[in-house]
C-alpha cells in the first residue's frame, strides 16, 4: 500500500515537471531566428506565398495562444508538423524510433554483458593488473568524446581492417525484413532470414559499442565498488568460514546484493543513451531519431527539434520514475 501511495505521489509530482518541460521547449523553439514559413515556401517563393503560409500555420498569432494551441495538440498526440518532411512530427518519430530503440537496446545489452562481468572481475582481483586495466578502461570511458571514438572505430574497423560495414543498418543490396517491431535484429529472425540478421548484427556492432562505452565504464565501476562493499560484509565472511566455494559466494551472494545499484544505474543510463544517440547516429549514419534531430537542427525545423526534445525528456522522466519504483521494491530499507 505504501508503495502505491508513493507511486501516486510521484505521478502527481510529474505533472508540473512535464508541464514545465513543454513550456521550456516551447520557449526555446520560439527563440529560433529563422522564419519557418519562408523555409517551407521554398527558395524562389514570392512574398504573398510566404504570408499565406504564415497565416495558415498560425505563426501570426500571439505567443501564449500558440502555446495553448500547442498544449491542446499535445494532449491529442499532436507534436506539430515537420517543416522539412511536410508531415506530422509524430509520424516522423514513429519512423525513426525503431532504429534508435534497436541501437539503445543493443547498447544496454553490451553494458550489462560486458560491464557486469568486468566489474565483478576487477572486484575479485582487486588491485591486480586486471583491476588496473579496468580502471583505465573506465577513466577513458567517462572522458571520451563519443563522436571522436566513433570516427576512430570507423577508421580502424571499416577503413583499414575492412571487418565491419561503415554506415546504415543493412548493406545496400539487402532489403529490410518485413515490418513487425521495426527492430531489424528481431524482424529478420522472425522472418527466418539468417543472412539479414547477420548483416544487421555486423552493422550494429560499432555504433552500439560507441554509444555504450561511457555507460559501460560507469557500470563497471559501480559493480566493482558495490561488490567490494558486499564482500566485506559479515555474512560473506561467515560463508567463507563455512567453507563455501569462492565461486558460489561470488555468484550467489555478492552478485545478488550488488545488483540493486546496478539496476539503478542501468535504468538511468537508458535516458542518457537516448541523448547520446544524437552523436552516435550522426557518425554512423544510423537512421534514428538522433540523426533525425541533427538534420532538423541544420534545417531549423523547429517542430521537429521540439518534438524530439520533448519525447526524449518525457522518456527520461518516466524512466527515472520507473527506476525509483523498482528501487523501492528491491530495497526494503528505503523510506518513501
Amino acid at each position: 500500500m505504501r508503495i502505491v501511495s508513493y507511486v501516486l505521489k510521484r505521478l502527481a509530482y510529474l505533472v508540473p515537471v512535464l508541464l514545465g518541460v513543454t513550456l521550456l521547449v516551447f520557449i526555446i523553439s520560439h527563440a529560433i531566428p529563422g522564419d519557418p514559413a519562408r523555409m517551407m515556401a521554398g527558395q524562389k517563393a514570392s512574398r504573398e506565398a510566404v504570408e499565406n503560409l504564415r497565416r495558415s500555420m498560425g505563426l501570426d498569432r500571439p505567443l501564449y495562444e500558440q502555446y495553448l494551441r500547442y498544449l491542446a495538440g499535445l494532449v491529442q498526440g499532436d507534436l506539430g508538423f515537420s517543416i522539412r518532411n511536410q508531415r506530422p512530427v509524430l509520424e516522423d518519430m514513429r519512423d525513426f524510433f525503431p532504429a534508435t530503440l534497436e541501437l539503445t537496446l543493443a547498447s544496454m545489452l553490451l553494458c550489462v554483458t560486458v560491464g557486469v562481468p568486468l566489474g565483478i572481475l576487477s572486484a575479485v582481483r582487486r588491485n591486480r593488473p586486471i583491476d588496473h586495466l579496468s580502471r583505465i578502461f573506465s577513466v577513458f570511458g567517462v572522458s571520451m568524446p563519443v563522436f571522436w571514438l566513433g570516427l576512430m572505430l570507423l577508421l580502424l574497423f571499416y577503413r583499414h581492417l575492412g571487418w565491419l560495414p561503415g554506415s546504415g543498418r543493412l548493406d545496400i543490396g539487402i532489403d529490410p525484413p518485413a515490418f513487425v517491431t521495426g527492430i531489424y535484429l528481431l524482424d529478420s529472425l522472425l522472418a527466418g532470414s539468417l543472412g539479414t540478421f547477420r548483416n544487421a548484427l555486423a552493422h550494429i556492432l560499432l555504433p552500439a559499442f560507441c554509444l555504450s562505452y561511457v555507460y559501460l565504464a560507469i557500470i563497471t565501476r559501480i559493480v566493482r565498488s558495490s561488490m567490494i562493499a558486499v564482500m566485506g560484509l559479515d555474512f560473506i565472511t561467515t560463508a567463507r568460514a563455512n567453507g563455501i566455494a569462492e565461486i558460489v559466494i561470488i555468484s550467489k551472494h555478492c552478485l545478488k546484493n550488488a545488483l540493486i545499484p546496478t539496476v539503478t544505474i542501468t535504468g538511468l543510463s537508458i535516458g542518457e543513451l537516448l541523448g547520446g544517440a544524437i552523436l552516435t547516429e550522426t557518425i554512423f549514419n544510423w537512421p534514428g531519431m538522433g540523426k533525425y534531430v541533427v538534420d532538423s537542427v541544420n534545417f531549423l525545423d523547429f517542430p521537429a527539434i521540439m518534438g524530439f526534445t520533448l519525447v526524449v525528456s518525457f522518456a527520461y522522466v518516466l524512466i527515472n520514475l520507473a527506476v525509483d519504483v523498482v528501487y523501492a521494491f528491491l530495497d526494503p530499507q528505503i523510506r518513501y
Binding site: V17, G20, V21, I28, I305, V312, Y316
Partner: peptide, 24 residues
C-alpha cells in the same frame, strides 16, 4: 527547485543542443 527539476528532466546534451540551436 521545480524549475531546476525541469532543467534536469532533459539529457544535458539534448537541452544544450536545443538551446544553442535557438540562440544561433
Amino acid at each position: 527547485m521545480r524549475v531546476m527539476d525541469v532543467i534536469l528532466s532533459f539529457p544535458p546534451l539534448v537541452l544544450a543542443m536545443a538551446l544553442a540551436a535557438a540562440l544561433g
